[in-house]
Design a protein around this nucleic acid. Sequence first.
DNA 1: ATTTCTGCAAATGCTTTGCATTGCA
DNA 2: TGCAATGCAAAGCATTTGCAGAAAT
Lengths: 144, 144
Amino acid sequence: MQAIEEMLREKRIKVTPQRMAVYAVLRETRRHPNVEMIYQKLKPTYPAMSLATVYKTVDVLNKVGLIQELNVGEGGLRYDATIKPHPHVYCEKCGKVADVEGFSMDNLHEESLLKKIQEETGYNLSSVQLYFYGKCPECNIVNK
Amino acid sequence: MQAIEEMLREKRIKVTPQRMAVYAVLRETRRHPNVEMIYQKLKPTYPAMSLATVYKTVDVLNKVGLIQELNVGEGGLRYDATIKPHPHVYCEKCGKVADVEGFSMDNLHEESLLKKIQEETGYNLSSVQLYFYGKCPECNIVNK
DNA sequence: ATTTCTGCAAATGCTTTGCATTGCA
DNA sequence: TGCAATGCAAAGCATTTGCAGAAAT
């Protein structure tokens, strides 16, 4: 795994402690946190860090392509440091987001398919998201 | 096409002019409007209708399965009266949402695939959404 | 030295809520 | 009649913005 500092530098954005910290949090977790979760996680270590900075930081990291933004149900946008396209499952009860690893999205990026959809819709496409909705194992146990 | 009044009645929800009007708007358009757009569309005909009612109505229609809710980019949730699963394309510049018709999502609902993903994730799945992101034809022409 | 980022607080925008009134069944 | 839906205004969150001071290149 490449050093975080290097990765930011390669993207030609200024390397600040806040940016390294936010990116580090996202690389260490599989929980697809939203901005508030990232903020809470960083608070003990960076008491001065502002929520607005977390918002700005995930925006920058997303725009340079170091992380991806997930638009699943409620609770705000979620962030994922794994940028290789993969499907996500969302729990409609507790809001948990998990990766689906056993399904490749390569076929959705396949040259011919994207081209076909571009022709049909006239859109110039750049990315794809596949979301599955349901109930997570923990919420399934609980009645109702 | 079935009469709107009948469809609401079959879902055992109270039939009101507001609900029929909102559902009618969604059946007549392919623009995947958000709540504000539906509200603006109805204002001339139903000047007394409240924005809150539109919010409550799309929520009810979605819950009984007459419409589906789309969680694409900015500008609020979008609504679609076509409930058969199909992919959507979202324009990252102007926010337009369009249907993709040339790609079937049946394979994503295939018994074996859903089962496989349920086994891997432990989630009990109920629905799927496939979103493509890019730029629409109109926005592609404009520079930058 | 410049440019960009951060932190704060205020502002914005979408959505929900509480409640009195109205309307469907 | 009784329960549910509507309309209005206020409240609630998530997110954005403007700007002065701080930090990175």
